[in-house]
Design a protein around this nucleic acid. Structure first.
Length: 314
DNA sequence: AAATGACACAACCGCCGATGA
DNA sequence: ATCATCGGCGGTTGTGTCATT
């Protein structure tokens, strides 16, 4: 990005297109033009608005930043969960995934995936499209996000743990899960902005045709989460993990700031938990005993824990 | 306090499909 | 049928910020 040149305001550059970061004046100009003339016809907009930008650049700036319904700030656990779930289903179809996260742009989701998720894969030296990684996401990350969801739910409402909720599997089979309330909506969680996206009937049909993986969607009539078998299994597994019968899980803080919903470093409270939930750690590969009590240094996952797991998957 | 590195994110690039002349 | 233009998408890069040494 040749910003030094692009930001030049010398007269000889007046006819050149600007590049690089947008200024407040440019933002105002673009916003004003769109409020007067509407979106679209970006090249025409670029010419008539007085902006020395390409139509593409104007479009991108508007859609990713200036548009009023663009949501700023950290992704909520619900949104992260949805991204993981939808990415496992659609891959790098960022715009399609973004359609299911109101206010989030494809660019933002793409950045999230690359900076947060691919980073973990790199540390583990596995590919994000590999089966091992899918398993890691399913068995480690998603349950933890569910825990975060539950925590945020329970902090905003009185404890409603272990409430039985109806689920509809994606093949139409009903099932009850006691994973605790999944606060996709309702008074438990203020999810006006992070609410799940309802799929229209056509899309649900389309999904069912192509969906070999999993999906979280919602029955419009009953407001019941519709999940895949594997996602239901994840939640059941999570319930097993969090059940008092097996002890509790503690979370060692990983705080960026109050609004950050980073996945916290995860630590089972007792070794028995790990056995009971059948963590895939064979005797010969049992990690050091302090793996349960260590202050894990990694940010999102306990890399050692995941590394063990990924080795077993290979 | 300065240098360095890592990180997050905004912005750009190239490609492709749709559309209209 | 062909070509030009446009919009959209996914991949990549540049830059500012923050943390660490």
């Amino acid at each position: 990005m040749s910003t030094s040149k692009s930001v030049s305001s010398s007269s000889e550059d007046d006819n050149e297109l600007r590049r690089g970061p947008w200024t407040l004046e440019e933002d105002n100009l673009l916003s004003q033009y769109i409020s007067d003339h509407g979106e679209g016809r970006w090249n025409l907009l670029a010419k008539r608005s007085g902006l020395k930008r390409t139509g593409k650049s104007c479009r991108l700036r508007w859609l990713n930043y200036l548009k009023p319904d663009v949501k700023r700030g950290n992704l909520t656990p619900q949104e992260q969960l949805l991204i993981l779930e939808l990415h496992s289903k659609w891959g790098n179809r960022w715009s399609k995934i973004a359609q299911h996260l109101p206010g989030r742009t494809d660019n933002e989701i793409k950045n999230y995936w690359r900076t947060r998720i691919q980073k973990q894969a790199r540390h583990l030296k596995i590919e994000t499209d590999s089966r091992e990684f899918q398993e890691l996401v399913r068995r480690f990350w998603m349950p933890r996000l569910l825990q975060k969801v539950k925590e945020s739910s329970c902090s905003s409402a009185m404890s409603i743990q272990n409430q039985e909720i109806p689920l509809v599997l994606d093949d139409g089979v009903s099932q009850h899960s006691t994973v605790g309330t999944i606060p996709w909506q309702g008074p438990c969680v203020s999810m006006n902005e992070g609410s799940p996206t309802y799929m229209d009937q056509h899309e649900q049909n389309s999904d069912s045709e192509h969906n070999s993986g999993s999906c979280i969607s919602f029955s419009e009539s009953a407001n019941i989460p519709k999940v895949s078998h594997h996602f239901a299994h994840t939640m059941d597994q999570f319930h097993a993990l969090s059940s008092n019968d097996f002890g509790t899980y503690s979370y060692e803080g990983y705080h960026v700031n109050d609004n950050a919903y980073e996945i916290e470093t995860f630590k089972p409270a007792s070794a028995r938990v790990a056995q009971d939930v059948q963590y895939p750690i064979a005797d010969s590969q049992t990690p050091p005993t302090d793996w349960l009590s260590n202050d894990f240094a990694c940010s999102m996952w306990n890399i050692d824990e995941l590394w063990q797991f990924s080795k077993l998957q290979k």
